[in-house]
Design a protein around this nucleic acid. Structure first.
Lengths: 107, 107
DNA sequence: CATAGTACCTTGCAAAACAATGTACTATGT
DNA sequence: ACATAGTACATTGTTTTGCAAGGTACTATG
């Protein structure tokens, strides 16, 4: 459900959340799940892509309540990517709203 | 550029435009291009999907300025689909904005 | 000792946007 | 007569990315 709409926006959301502080993967799934349906099968591959791209890096922290947690920290380049993507998002959603409202000439 | 963001929304946009009147494919490309980058390689397969789904039907009209035009007309079920998708879009974009603004607990 | 919760990860599939390519018609300029 | 540009249709193959399903392993509870 609404799988297609999420394309491209999840990356931006993860970066935006990490801009506000470090988080571990499982935690990100829970945070985002408050707003959108999302699973680990989506988030873990995404974190790998972001790390490969240099937008985030990571460190391990032991936990008493289960297995060790892999925390993610945003990089400077990640912060920049977030800003760009948020700008694109604003532009894009304004464009969609314009098309939905409809102001096109009658050809 | 921003290819991913468009996923799922183009269908909704086409349906919204057809709700306001019949259009032919090439015309739709031009109308949408005012707001978003989109090409025939995207629109024609989309129209085929919409027709297969029963959201639209079509008829041919001769033209003096070039090859015949295939006009698309929205069906009742297409109108309903448009309404649903627009609702999902509103919900979705609100969810994204919430995640961008960030109100999550420091769990 | 089974179950549930936490936390990590990978594989394979599906949907959709798009560049590239192709056809064919009309109109314009030379 | 012929080339070019604009109109209008269509298909093929590639790419990206979300997600279900499956797997590992640790801790806590009944």
């Amino acid at each position: 459900m609404q799988t297609q709409l999420k394309r491209g926006t999840l990356e931006m959301c993860v970066l935006a959340i990490l801009c506000r502080g470090d988080r571990y993967g499982y935690e990100l799934v829970n945070i985002i799940s408050d707003c959108l349906h999302v699973t680990e099968g989506t988030i873990y591959p995404l974190m790998k892509r972001l790390k490969d791209a240099g937008s985030i890096d990571s460190y391990i922290v032991e936990s008493q309540e289960g297995p060790p947690r892999k925390y993610y920290r945003i990089t400077e380049s990640g912060r920049q990517a977030e800003k760009e993507q948020e700008g694109e998002w604003r532009e894009f959603s304004a464009a969609i709203d314009k098309l939905l409202d409809g102001e096109e000439r009658t050809a």
